[in-house]
Amino acid sequence: MRQEKLKYLAKLALLVLMGIFGSFLISEAGLRLMNISYPVFHGFDPVRGRILEPGMEGWFRYEGNAYVKINSAGFRDVEHPLQKPKGTYRILLLGDSYTEARQVSLENTFGRKVEQQLQSCERLLPHLVEVINFGVPGYGNAEELITLRSRGWAYDPDLVLTMFFSGNDLIDNFPRAELREPAYIPRPYFHLDQGELKLAYNFQEWSPPILKYRLLLWGVHNFRTLELLNQANRVLAARHIGDSQENLSSRAGLADFVYAPPQTPIHREAWDITEGILKLMHQEVLKHGANFFLVTATSPDQIDQEERILLKERLATKKLDYPEQRLRALGEIEGFPVLNLLYDFQQYAEQHPAHLHGFSNTKLGAGHWNEQGHELAAQLISKRICQDPSIL
């Protein structure tokens, strides 16, 4: 009797598995026939943690609408030869999602526009200008420095431009990663040890969490059904993102507080680490015979007039440019140029009805730069590069 029951249960389990497998195949075939895809562009690297997966491509419609293609080197850009062509002035961009800019077409990113606009810069003639985009979403300055070390110097850049986003770079640089994001997101970071920066990792390459993380990435990279399930999970999680961000921010003691002078030890430590990384990056750039240029991106809360008023009241401050002022002072002390986009962006927003952040499928005035934001950023960056003798 018991043996017959076990056989029945085994047959039932087999039928269930066959049903699940069959449904999976039908779902996979249907999604591919209808060309429905929600690509995950991230991959894993034992040195840098998260990377962009070489060869991945597809439409990104979560914010904006653009076709994204990752080149063979693992960056959202066209292919670039390692060896710099003769007569070329090569600019390497470091940054996060503002620099990678999957919300707009590649042609409309500030990096491509800077490349186009600098071709007519008389001080660069007869050189051809080439801009290489090394931006990766989610990166802080630690990952950017490691990317420069492990990948960037092989391209022999003449100028390294780092796009700093105060909205999350300060948090991304903070070593206590467990306070701000799930442990399964691999991240290298720097921490202070008796005043010196020390590199560490919140993961081990072959640890169970990383093996699980890599298995999940393999799944969503190869199966449309898993892409769809991942997208559904992302949409559900987005409904609670407000509460989640608030909790993480309050636990880390950062977030909106970056726009005012530091009030807590955690906040001061985060700034010390951030400035230390930027100093180190500048020093290494000079050692390689290149120039260093820091540009500060804008947060939508600094540009949208209603949000600016609310944030000023919440922080009890008259201005929201503490990061810009602090980084400008750092540049003056260390001897590298800093371009704060904030003031020109604010002036443009006050004089024009158009938004520089946000998209019609999300919220205008919120999120990343749209096409107009990238255009304005490119104009300001190109003008500064062409006119500033400390850059060229």
Rank of each mutant, 00 (worst) to 15 (best):
M1V: 11
Y8C: 11
L9T: 04
A10F: 10
K11L: 14
V16N: 03
M18Q: 10
M18E: 06
F21L: 13
S23V: 11
I26D: 05
L31W: 07
M34W: 13
M34A: 15
S37I: 01
G43F: 04
Y62F: 13
V68Y: 07
N71L: 07
S72L: 09
R76V: 06
R76N: 04
T88I: 08
L93H: 00
R102K: 12
V104A: 03
L106Y: 13
E107V: 12
E107A: 15
E107S: 13
E107P: 04
F110T: 02
Q116F: 04
Q119Y: 11
E122P: 07
L128K: 15
V129P: 04
E130S: 13
I132H: 08
N133E: 08
F134N: 01
V136Q: 00
Y139K: 01
E143K: 11
E144T: 07
W153S: 09
V160M: 01
F164N: 00
S166M: 07
S166D: 02
N168A: 14
N173W: 08
E181P: 01
P186D: 02
P186S: 09
R187V: 13
R187P: 00
P188A: 08
Y189S: 05
G195V: 11
E196Y: 10
E205M: 03
K212C: 07
L217Y: 05
F223H: 13
F223W: 15
R224G: 06
T225Y: 08
Q231H: 15
Q231F: 14
V235G: 02
S244P: 03
E246S: 14
N247S: 14
S250A: 12
A252W: 03
L254A: 02
Y259S: 06
P265G: 08
A270W: 02
W271A: 06
D272W: 02
I273T: 07
K279A: 07
K279V: 06
H282Q: 07
H288K: 14
F293K: 05
T296L: 11
Q305S: 15
R308V: 11
R308H: 07
I309R: 13
L315K: 02
Y322N: 04
A329I: 00
L330D: 03
F336T: 00
P337G: 06
P337K: 03
Y343C: 02
Q347I: 10
A354P: 01
A354S: 14
H355C: 10
S360Y: 12
N361R: 10
G365N: 05
H368A: 05
N370T: 05
H374Q: 14
R384N: 14
R384L: 06
Q387C: 09
S390V: 04
